[in-house]
Each structure stands twice: as structure tokens, then as C-alpha cells.
């Protein structure tokens, strides 16, 4: 039963994702959202990508989620927000999106069936940080630069958008 950890992590990730989508209270959703990258890190590990698993834990569960937590704290949500959220989540609202998502799921699953299966004897060989690093600073150096530009742009725009919050209150007339 070497597949057990994979199945376990998978179930946890799927369950957590569903909980995120269906929670009325933002903090609850956020807590479930932390579970998703953590369990996915486990999945990565079982897939033989320990480096990716580490980054997933550090950056996603560590950095991005903390960002979310801070924002939720600053929003100062209360009981009224939860009630409004419940109101917004009436069953009828889910029909269309569920239909679309279901269709997408079916279509993707059918696509997946076209992938030839791996040979059962083919052992999962881990791909370590070294090979990834060699690729990153070899043929993919341009995309590293692009990623850095993207992050810089994100930084600048986040700073720009948040610039006036304290200063002039709304910043608008």
C-alpha cells in the first residue's frame, strides 16, 4: 500500500478545497485554505518532487496564507458579514457554476484518459533541486527574469494601490 499517503493527501486536499468554497465565514475558509497547500505538498512529495513540496510549504502555506490572514484581520469581519454571506450562498446560486464546473471536470477527465498509462514497474524517481536549478539557470533563465519582473510589478502595484489608505482616508471625494 505504497499509494496510501498519496490517497490520504489527495482526499485531504480535495476535502479542504471543497470546505474553502463552501464556508460562510472568511476565517474558516482561510483555515481550510491553509490545509490545501500543506496536503498538496504531501502529494508533491509522493510524486517525487521534494523541492517543490518544500517551496509549496514555505511560500504558499507560509507567505501567501499569512498575507491572507493579515487581510482578513484588517477587514474586521463580523456576524453581519457571515449572515450576508449565507444569504449570498442560496442554493439556486450554485446551479449554474456547478453545471459549468461539472462539465469542465468531465471534459478534463476524458482528456486525461488519452494519456498513456505508466508502466507499473516504472519506479518514481525523485527529481531533486539540483536538476531544477540547472534548468532554471540554464535554458529557462529568461523565464526567471520574467518571474522577477512579475514580482516587481506586483510589488509596485500593491504599494501603489495601498498608498493612500491611511493618508486621506478614502482617497476619493
Amino acid at each position: 500500500m505504497s499509494d496510501l499517503p498519496f490517497i490520504l493527501f489527495s482526499l485531504v486536499a480535495a476535502w479542504a478545497a471543497i470546505m474553502v468554497v463552501t464556508r460562510a465565514v472568511a476565517v474558516h475558509a482561510l483555515l481550510y485554505l491553509v490545509v490545501v497547500p500543506l496536503s498538496l505538498a504531501g502529494v508533491f512529495f509522493t510524486l517525487g518532487a521534494p523541492f517543490a513540496a518544500m517551496l509549496e510549504v514555505i511560500i504558499y502555506a507560509g507567505a501567501v496564507m499569512v498575507l491572507f490572514v493579515f487581510v482578513v484581520m484588517m477587514l474586521n469581519l463580523g456576524r453581519s458579514d457571515r449572515d450576508r454571506e449565507r444569504h449570498w450562498m442560496a442554493p439556486a446560486v450554485w446551479i449554474g457554476p456547478a453545471l459549468l464546473s461539472g462539465l469542465l471536470l468531465i471534459a478534463l477527465c476524458i482528456t486525461l484518459r488519452t494519456i498513456p498509462p505508466t508502466a507499473a514497474s516504472d519506479a518514481m524517481v525523485p527529481i531533486g533541486p539540483q536538476s531544477v536549478g540547472l534548468l532554471l539557470y540554464g535554458p529557462y533563465v529568461l523565464s526567471v527574469e520574467l518571474a522577477s519582473f512579475l514580482l516587481l510589478a506586483g510589488l509596485v502595484s500593491a504599494f501603489h494601490i495601498g498608498r493612500n489608505i491611511r493618508g486621506t482616508g478614502t482617497g476619493e471625494p
Partner: peptide, 30 residues
């Protein structure tokens, strides 16, 4: 090391993607 099937992992990815999309489409809270 465990020998998880990448195909099953793709299946999980598909499921997560669909659930995420469901959330984007259905939730009104930004």
C-alpha cells in the same frame, strides 16, 4: 519512495481546478 500514479495526481488536479472554478463563479465575496 512511494509510487503514486501521476495520472491519479492529474485527476486530483482536475478536481481541485473544478472546485476552485466553482468557488470563483458561485461566491460573491471578493
Amino acid at each position: 519512495m512511494s509510487a503514486a500514479s501521476p495520472t491519479h495526481a492529474l485527476l486530483l488536479a482536475t478536481l481541485l481546478f473544478a472546485v476552485g472554478m466553482l468557488g470563483v463563479l458561485a461566491r460573491r465575496n471578493l
